[in-house]
């Protein structure tokens, strides 16, 4: 599903100072996997996730998404892939505060270019129901708890029925109990709906809940 071959990512911090976030990363994420990328902060795991999620581009090396070389895709095609193929869940939830919970969930469907086979509104309500936050549909994100916000973010990630969920420290801003619940939901998505789930975390405890761990230290897979 996703193949990275000898990927490097360098940031030009200053005229003379370059920082290498990823060094020669080669990895494969197979369809249906429930895996985690684990490493200490500054190890390059978020950068790796951004590259997998098509938010960022590799400096060198090859990134294949479903066999397609990302380098050959233009901005619109990448946007479409982010829209249809990937669902993001972020540490800071990243909801749009001026939109209601329901509207937030619907945003990806507004940007959809393909004709959806289902009614996005019904789908959104179903997801909110499933995550136990249907009664918050008309609320605004800043009026609900962190755990609820993360559930909204997950509903948003799922509205386009993606093949891949990328979760960047999804439990990072939540207490342990709420975090465990989110992890449980992610596990269910993988198990019941065969969605590939990749979690980025620095906590071994969270990584242990996934079936495959990819360790990264100083930009290298170990």
């Amino acid at each position: 599903m996703i193949n990275l071959k000898n990927v490097y990512k360098e940031f030009q911090l200053d005229e003379n100072v370059a920082y290498t976030a990823l060094r020669n990363v080669t990895l494969t994420i197979k369809e249906g996997e429930f895996s985690s990328i684990i490493g200490p902060s500054g190890s390059g795991k978020s950068t790796l996730m951004h590259i997998i999620g098509l938010l960022d581009k590799a400096s060198r090396g090859q990134v294949l998404v479903q066999g397609k070389d990302v380098k050959r895709l233009n901005d619109d095609e990448l946007s479409t892939l982010r829209n249809e193929f990937v669902g993001f869940v972020f540490q800071q939830f990243n909801l749009i505060n001026k939109l209601t919970v329901l509207e937030n969930v619907l945003v990806p469907s507004i940007y959809a270019r393909k004709k959806l086979k289902y009614d996005p509104y019904k789908k959104a309500m179903y997801l909110l129901e499933r995550f136990g936050i249907a009664e918050k549909a008309k609320s605004y994100p800043n009026k609900i708890s962190g755990g609820q916000q993360q559930r909204v973010a997950m509903a948003r990630a799922l509205i386009m029925e993606p093949k891949l969920i990328l979760a960047d420290e999804p439990t990072g801003n939540l207490d342990t109990k709420t975090g465990d619940e989110i992890m449980k939901l992610l596990g269910e998505l993988n198990k019941k709906e065969k969605i590939t789930v990749v979690i980025v975390t620095h906590e071994p405890y969270i990584a242990a809940k996934t079936k495959k761990q990819i360790r990264i230290v100083d930009g290298k897979i170990v």
């Binding site: 999620g53 938010l55 901005d75 619109d76 946007s79 479409t80 982010r82 829209n83 249809e84 993001f88 990243n94 909801l95 749009i96 945003v107 990806p108 940007y111 959809a112 948003r156 386009m160």
Partner: peptide, 14 residues
């Protein structure tokens, strides 16, 4: 917000 929208599929034209 622009970043969030781009991450969930907004194109440049959007």
């Amino acid at each position: 917000e622009i970043g969030i929208r781009r991450a969930i599929g907004a194109r440049k034209t959007d």
